[in-house]
Design a protein around this nucleic acid. Structure first.
Length: 202
DNA sequence: GGTAGGATAAGCT
DNA sequence: GCTTATCCTACCA
């Protein structure tokens, strides 16, 4: 039962319009294996960073640096960056090789390795394990060493469950940005208790 | 219940 | 110097 949680998404899943990829990622499962220790969670919240014309995206104006280089990588790659001197954030790279677009993972519903998440996050409250981009990286053991890895690789993969639950999706503005603040590029599962902030529209 | 401020570092001007 | 795709604690209500 190697893939009890589902089958890995193929590269062509990611090689599409970034907003479509973002929507379709809701309900899929992220699984990591760090030093043999597995953890997994269902994606309930994402944000799209749609390309060089997106003022809030790291690849705005085609500006490529050592830090964001993997944002320009092939679809289905991990782009991981360090922010605010404290936190890692993980993205899935989309569209075509050389084009800077990606989907930021913002919140997961914990599914497997719950004891490990509890230890890594240093809190017994499951709501605080994966409800935010920095939190979910800590819970799943994702660090800069994952930058540039394939999302179908041995250490991190994204799976489509055999029986994917129907998702009631909501859309809103992205969080924590100062430019393009009204672009509705945050997609999340309406009413989910695992979001990075409470859904008041549910 | 809510919010203000600090931690902490890379990248930019 | 200043900003940043964040999180946590302290404090006030």
């Amino acid at each position: 039962m190697r893939h009890a949680l589902g089958q890995p998404l193929r590269p062509r899943f990611y090689a599409r319009d970034t907003q479509r990829v973002a929507r379709d990622l809701l309900g899929c499962v992220v699984e990591t294996r760090v030093r043999g220790v597995p953890t997994a969670g269902r994606i309930v919240e994402v944000e799209a960073y749609v390309g060089p014309h997106d003022p809030a995206a790291h690849g705005y104006g085609w500006r490529k640096t050592a830090r964001n280089a993997w944002l320009f990588g092939p679809p289905g790659t991990c782009y991981v960056y360090f922010i605010y001197g404290n936190h890692w954030c993980v993205n899935v790279v989309t569209e075509r090789d050389g084009y800077p677009s990606a989907v930021l993972l913002r919140a997961l519903e914990p599914l497997a390795g719950l004891d490990v998440m509890k230890r890594r996050r240093r809190t017994g409250d499951p709501r605080l394990w994966c409800s935010g981009p920095g939190r979910l990286c800590e819970a799943l053991g994702i660090t800069g060493r994952f930058n540039g890895e394939s999302l179908a690789g041995p250490r991190i993969r994204v799976l489509r469950p055999a029986r994917r639950q129907p998702v009631r999706m909501a859309v809103g503005p992205r969080i924590g940005i100062t430019r393009a603040v009204d672009w509705p590029l945050r997609f999340y599962v309406r009413g989910s208790p695992w979001l990075s902030r409470q859904d008041r529209t549910a």
